[in-house]
Nucleic acid binder design. Sequence first.
DNA 1: TTGCTAATGCTAATCATTCTCATTTGCAAT
DNA 2: ATTGCAAATGAGAATGATTAGCATTAGCAA
Lengths: 141, 141
Amino acid sequence: MNELLHLKSAGLKSTLPRLKVLSLFESGSDRHLSAEDVYRKLLASGDDVGLATVYRVLNQFEQAGLLVKHHFEGDKSVFELNQGDHHDHIVCLQCGRVEEFFDATIEQRQKKAAADRGFELHDHSLYIYANCIKPKCKYRN
Amino acid sequence: MNELLHLKSAGLKSTLPRLKVLSLFESGSDRHLSAEDVYRKLLASGDDVGLATVYRVLNQFEQAGLLVKHHFEGDKSVFELNQGDHHDHIVCLQCGRVEEFFDATIEQRQKKAAADRGFELHDHSLYIYANCIKPKCKYRN
DNA sequence: TTGCTAATGCTAATCATTCTCATTTGCAAT
DNA sequence: ATTGCAAATGAGAATGATTAGCATTAGCAA
């Protein structure tokens, strides 16, 4: 029911593909999904949604503020549910695991860096590429 | 002569296309160039270098540590001369002007953020997207 | 000067993403 | 419930950046 409200308020019709995609993210085990990921997952669960539609819906959701889009290293972009909390990302170069973090000091200094140089910060993207040192990383031990 | 040394030490033959590309960056008015940019500039100066070669050379130079590659918002990537000093970027959303900056505190906190979560920082990319408030911005006044 | 390997320059191929357009579907007004 | 129509979908073609394949050319060491 919540989804419906979201879609409505975004001026989007409540259609099958859109509901499927949205619930994928809301039920999500993986928070960060590419268009291809979404497409595969839907196919796997027997829901036939065209790839073009997935791309369209994802972008509409981003516009509507339901999702946030990220460009990690490499070509394809990934989306995650927008839960209001801004955060940055650490991506493991080995296993691809993504961890989120927020550092008020970094945010602060960014704003200052921009202001000092005569810019008005609009947005930023910070990705840290690293290696897990935890045993969690599937490519270690 | 300096270029020659660079190429040699990178195990790259000193060829015309490579010298052309390298001097483009070293003489550079624009520090940040895409493959397409390089291609156009070379054509403009009467030097005929194939686009594929430009891409190849750019990547080889990156591997060799002569250039650094960046992915600003959007699709195409840009290269800049590697002068040893790491820095991040502020990109004007209006005019595309790129300003470089370095903030020791931000660097520090990033390392800490990674370490705190069991990662060993390998690399990071930080891009600030902003609007010039200086009259410099060609899309203002 | 010769010879061989690496480099170049085309063009065709890839990959992610977007566009086109004919067909279908949500939904508001009968 | 039924109808009508704009909005949404699906399939495949088109795009744009980047890379691969291969025949030709050019550094450079002997």
